[in-house]
């Protein structure tokens, strides 16, 4: 069984684009365990289900949990401790004019803490910053310098601690999950299996906020057969 920790950003994308059941089909066919932190459940279901504007998506996520293909992990004392540790590392990560810049919030910290708690090596996250922070911290520093027109100092000790904290980790986004489901035939259980349907789903994910560029999608689609 493969465990994938899912951040709220990917839940937003998949529920918005009506492709959340792809997780169910992949759970059935590939024995994948999709897990979310308790806070993501509260944020995606408990609170928005009371607001008409957000109710439909909240019901979709609640159904996924009730059907059992999206599992909610309680925030244990261990997760809380890891969250605090993660939060501290993230706060120490970089500084501008001697002051720390806090790039990530407790929401993302909890997903990373859950990764540590479960020992999972894969995280699905559609937002950009958390992924970049771990995959390419030097790049995010350059990016911040460009955006804020000021020198940003990266704390190499915090980078090392972060890498130790999360270990070897694979980040995927909802677009890769959709593409994978297309290959396995699980996509066809939701939409007919054609290149056009795949393209539509990938752009749907992008327009729902998945951090993927037009070029990436185009490059990928070039090697998909009709």
């Amino acid at each position: 069984m493969t465990e994938i920790v899912v951040d709220s950003s990917s839940i937003i994308t998949l529920s918005n684009s009506c492709l959340i059941r792809i997780m169910k089909h992949l759970t059935d066919s590939k024995n994948i365990n999709f897990i979310i932190p308790e806070s993501v459940y509260l944020e995606s279901v408990k609170n928005p289900v009371k607001i008409k504007k957000y109710e439909l998506n909240a019901v979709r996520v609640r159904d996924a949990v009730e059907e059992g293909y999206l599992k909610v992990r309680k925030t244990t004392p261990g997760v809380r401790k890891s969250m605090a540790e993660m939060d501290k590392i993230a706060t120490d990560f970089c500084k501008s004019k001697g002051r720390p810049i806090k790039l990530i919030d407790l929401g993302e910290a909890e997903a990373l803490a859950l990764l540590k708690e479960t020992g999972s090596k894969t995280m699905m996250i559609d937002e950009r910053t958390t992924r970049m922070l771990i995959e390419n911290p030097e790049n995010i520093t350059r990016f911040l310098e460009r955006k804020h027109h000021t020198q940003i100092n990266l704390n190499q000790n915090a980078v090392r601690k972060l890498r130790e904290f999360v270990g070897e980790i694979n980040f995927i986004r909802s677009v890769e999950l959709i593409a994978f489901a297309y290959e396995t035939g699980d996509f066809a259980k939701e939409l007919h299996s054609s290149k056009q349907a795949l393209e539509a789903a990938l752009y749907g994910a992008k327009f729902s906020g998945c951090a993927v560029s037009f070029d990436e999608i185009k490059n990928y689609l070039r090697q998909v057969r009709n």
């Binding site: 790049n139 694979n170 999950l177 992008k206 729902s208 906020g209 951090a211 990436e216 999608i217």
Partner: peptide, 26 residues
Amino acid sequence: QEYIGATRIHDESLDKIEMQERLEKL
């Protein structure tokens, strides 16, 4: 997130790992 999805924010080239590579890992 929906608002950001409708902008070009994610089209700034920041990712070193492209979709094919992530998919291959998956």
